[in-house]
Each structure stands twice: as structure tokens, then as C-alpha cells.
Amino acid sequence: MDTYKLILNGKTLKGETTTEAVDAATAEKVFKHAANEHGVHGHWTYDPETKTFTVTE
């Protein structure tokens, strides 16, 4: 398992979190669910070198 990071750049919610996942696709599902639960919808990017997802509203 690897550690993946999410950076939230929402209009009303900003922050960072991490998750352990077997691959980037699994981490993305976890992060998108969490972002949706917090009402953050926007443009997603992924940097494979740093294993970091970013969502920007």
C-alpha cells in the first residue's frame, strides 16, 4: 500500500488529508467520495510523482 494525499482548494473548505490505498484509482475514489460529502466539486488533478490529488473549485 502507498500513501496518497488530497489537497482541497474549495470555495468554503480548504485542507489536506491522506489515505492508504493499493493504487491511485482506489485513492481517487476515496478522495472524490470525501470531497462530495463536504460539498467540494471542481477540477481534479493528479501528480503521480508526489501521489497528490488536488481539487480546485
Rank of each mutant, 00 (worst) to 15 (best):
M1R: 10
D2Y: 14
T3G: 04
T3R: 09
T3E: 10
Y4K: 03
K5W: 10
K5L: 08
K5G: 03
L6P: 03
L6G: 02
I7P: 00
I7E: 04
I7S: 03
I7Y: 05
L8P: 00
L8W: 14
L8Y: 13
N9G: 04
N9T: 06
N9F: 11
N9K: 10
N9Q: 10
G10M: 13
G10A: 06
K11P: 10
T12G: 09
T12F: 14
T12M: 12
L13H: 14
L13F: 15
K14A: 07
K14G: 05
K14P: 04
K14W: 12
G15R: 11
E16C: 15
E16G: 06
E16M: 13
E16R: 07
T17A: 13
T17W: 15
T17K: 11
T18K: 08
T18P: 01
T18C: 12
T19C: 15
T19K: 03
E20T: 13
E20W: 11
E20A: 08
E20S: 10
A21F: 04
A21I: 02
A21P: 00
A21D: 01
V22A: 13
V22T: 12
D23L: 03
D23R: 02
D23M: 03
A24I: 09
A24N: 04
A24D: 04
A24S: 08
A24M: 11
A24E: 07
T26E: 14
A27E: 00
E28H: 09
K29G: 08
K29D: 07
K29H: 10
K29S: 10
V30D: 05
V30T: 10
F31H: 00
F31C: 01
F31G: 01
K32T: 05
K32G: 04
K32Y: 06
K32W: 09
H33L: 14
A34M: 15
A35N: 03
N36D: 11
N36C: 12
N36M: 14
N36F: 13
E37S: 11
E37W: 09
E37T: 11
H38G: 07
H38A: 15
H38K: 14
G39P: 02
G39R: 06
G39L: 05
G39F: 09
G39D: 06
H41G: 07
H41E: 11
G42I: 02
H43I: 14
H43C: 13
H43W: 13
W44Q: 00
W44P: 01
W44H: 01
T45Y: 08
T45A: 10
Y46V: 01
Y46T: 00
Y46C: 00
Y46I: 01
Y46A: 00
P48A: 12
P48F: 07
P48Y: 06
E49P: 08
E49M: 12
E49T: 12
T50Y: 06
K51E: 01
F53Y: 05
F53D: 00
T54Q: 06
V55R: 00
V55M: 04
T56C: 06
T56F: 07
T56P: 01
T56G: 04
E57H: 05
